[in-house]
Design a protein around this nucleic acid. Sequence first.
DNA 1: GGATGCAGAGAACGACCGTTCTCTGCGCTC
DNA 2: GAGCGCAGAGAACGGTCGTTCTCTGCATCC
Lengths: 199, 199
Amino acid sequence: MDPTDPRRHVVETADRLFYARGVQAVGMDELRQASGVPLKRLYALFPSKEEIVLAVLARRHALWEEGVRERVDRAGTPRARLLAVYDHLADWFAEDSFRGCGFINAFGELGAVSPRVAEAARAHKRSFQEYVAGLVEAAGGPRELGPQLCLLAEGAQTTAAIAGTPEAAAQARRAAEVLVRAAMPSGDPDEPAQSTREA
Amino acid sequence: MDPTDPRRHVVETADRLFYARGVQAVGMDELRQASGVPLKRLYALFPSKEEIVLAVLARRHALWEEGVRERVDRAGTPRARLLAVYDHLADWFAEDSFRGCGFINAFGELGAVSPRVAEAARAHKRSFQEYVAGLVEAAGGPRELGPQLCLLAEGAQTTAAIAGTPEAAAQARRAAEVLVRAAMPSGDPDEPAQSTREA
DNA sequence: GGATGCAGAGAACGACCGTTCTCTGCGCTC
DNA sequence: GAGCGCAGAGAACGGTCGTTCTCTGCATCC
């Protein structure tokens, strides 16, 4: 029940419910029941449901950044770091609870109605694009490679979500390999010119 | 007001409203007001709101297929036909009303609650993948190229929607060119080995 | 130990949802 | 021209939403 940090407990519970079924499909009363936090305290912790949604998205953003960064940092060469992103996606897609990118879902559901949700999604995606751009730069790749790799990652997320199968991650990775190799064909000391797949 | 085909008129109005603001944000009363069709007749035409949503998605699917097919058929070589998909995306993203893929949005909003909506999205995406696979096969490309090109198209749609800018289409096109060239490097009689961008 | 205040449980509130029903009036049929 | 029936306008229905309020009990402090 995590009574030490009720705010965090509420956000985690809300995330689970919102992500699984959509924000509008989950009422405050269900959140109360699932979290064990009375309505009065919910509204003492958060002034409105929208604020809970934003807190959920903020947590999701932090977890995503942490997860990607960790995966990338485990990879060796700058080129392998570029592709590690897709391995992270593969793990994610394989989770039972996977139902697409929470930001894309929230944007589709609420983006037109809630400017703050729309902005949260925008900021999340922008942040990822900048991160990938940094990876590309560190690998000595051309500027246009970053957005292209991001498109593959985005497409994999929606494809895996709607199809309900995880193979989009591997497809995206292979496509990314091609793009990377085409953009940085040189005999870098980086790579053995073979597949960069780990283990 | 298109009194000749009230069913179609309702679906078009509903599509405009649902797409712009989300399904759940538009009540039946607003649809009545916007379409000029009284509630009683709405429910004579469609047994429920969900049925209207499905009709909207069916129309959207037909329009999408028609639009893509037309664009592709205008392209000359099999290789150019592969890339024409992204030109269609570019036109779409530039529309004022563009707010992402209606199926992705509907899936995020209702997919977890309405199996029929989820299945409609699945069928739509599957259909597109099969279409692209056919284009790849006609161009003599390898089997794995189709899904990769689709990932770029999907990613471009969500990226353009959330960012609110259309440049993802051009980025996807350039990435697709690279993938196509890498997968079909031969001296096909098809291409002058330069950019395939039209006019 | 009695007064004070805060927190939990849940009822209540107004608004709005999707859907159905009632009532009115107009246009046909014979 | 009288009777019939269908269609439009909108009220009504039961339910649920996000949010607030009331009431009860318990712990705390002088």
